[in-house]
């Protein structure tokens, strides 16, 4: 599914979080929204999802305007930085949630849902953990469950908000690799938000660099490295990423 972001604007009070942002994402691409904190990248992701509204501009999925469509009907999968798993449900129930809330006529039979849960647990490399509760899992495992849950209804678009941001360096690398593999296998158009240059460049087909609510450059990692669009981009990509510093 292609995504068209057309002149999106949003203010919080007097502070412009997004200032006329436009992007065109082709089908099946894996795109990173990269920028320092306060650059508006998470706000943009949440507007694409329908969890925030845009004061101006339009969003279209596959040519269809979804600007005023509620989040439930957009057919997206969303992965939160802090997992946001349902703490009172087992892993299996968490993953099945999107299917369980379907109207009776569209809901698959129970056997099929169970099969789907197994499939997804297999996909995120957590087979056999369906009966655990989220509190019994590690951070990396929780985020894998959150990913499986977001994929259960076969979303047209996958949106990930700092998906590995809450994890330590080793788990981060493993999960990154898993994310890329899953993307390549399913071919869903995906957008992930990160403040980590290295992560964005390692993972994404193309990177959109945001600063103060504006896109500074949108290109492949190689292109950005070869020809940074301006002084901000040059500074931002040459700075040593903080994750590396933290990992020593």
């Amino acid at each position: 599914m292609t995504i068209t972001i057309d002149n999106i604007g949003r203010r919080f009070g007097n502070y412009p979080a997004l200032n006329g942002v436009s992007l065109d994402l082709p089908e099946g691409e894996f795109v990173a929204l990269l920028g320092p904190s306060g650059s508006g990248k998470t706000t943009l992701l949440r507007i694409i999802a329908g969890l925030e509204y845009a004061e101006q501009g339009h969003i279209a999925f596959g040519g269809q305007d979804v600007t005023d469509m509620p989040v439930q009907h957009r057919g997206i999968g969303f992965v939160f930085q802090q997992y946001a798993l349902f703490r009172h449900m087992t892993v299996a129930k968490n993953i099945a949630f999107g299917l369980d809330v379907l109207p009776r006529k569209q809901r698959p039979p129970k056997a099929e849902i169970d099969k789907r849960i197994e499939e997804l647990l297999e996909l995120v490399q957590l087979p056999g953990l369906g009966n655990r509760y989220p509190s019994q899992l590690s951070g990396g495992q929780r985020q894998r469950v959150a990913l499986a849950r977001a994929l259960a209804r076969n979303p047209r678009i996958l949106l990930l908000d700092e998906p590995v941001g809450a994890l330590d360096a080793k788990v981060r690398r493993e999960l990154r690799r898993a994310l890329r593999q899953i993307h390549d296998r399913l071919g869903i158009t995906s957008i992930f938000v990160t403040h980590d240059r290295e992560e964005a460049f390692a993972l994404a087909d193309r990177v959109a660099i945001l600063n103060l609510g504006k896109i500074e450059q949108f290109a492949t990692p190689a292109e950005i490295e070869r020809a940074p669009a301006n002084a901000f981009v040059r500074d931002f990509i040459t700075d040593e990423p903080e994750a590396e510093r933290a990992a020593g």
Binding site: G77, F78, F86, F97, G98, V101, A146, R149, A150
Partner: peptide
């Protein structure tokens, strides 16, 4: 509100979100 947001993103209605989450 994170769990509620997750429920909505998974297609739950407002009422389903309230009663199930």
């Amino acid at each position: 509100r994170a769990e509620e947001e997750a429920a909505l993103s998974l297609g739950a209605s407002g009422w389903q979100t309230f009663t199930r989450v």
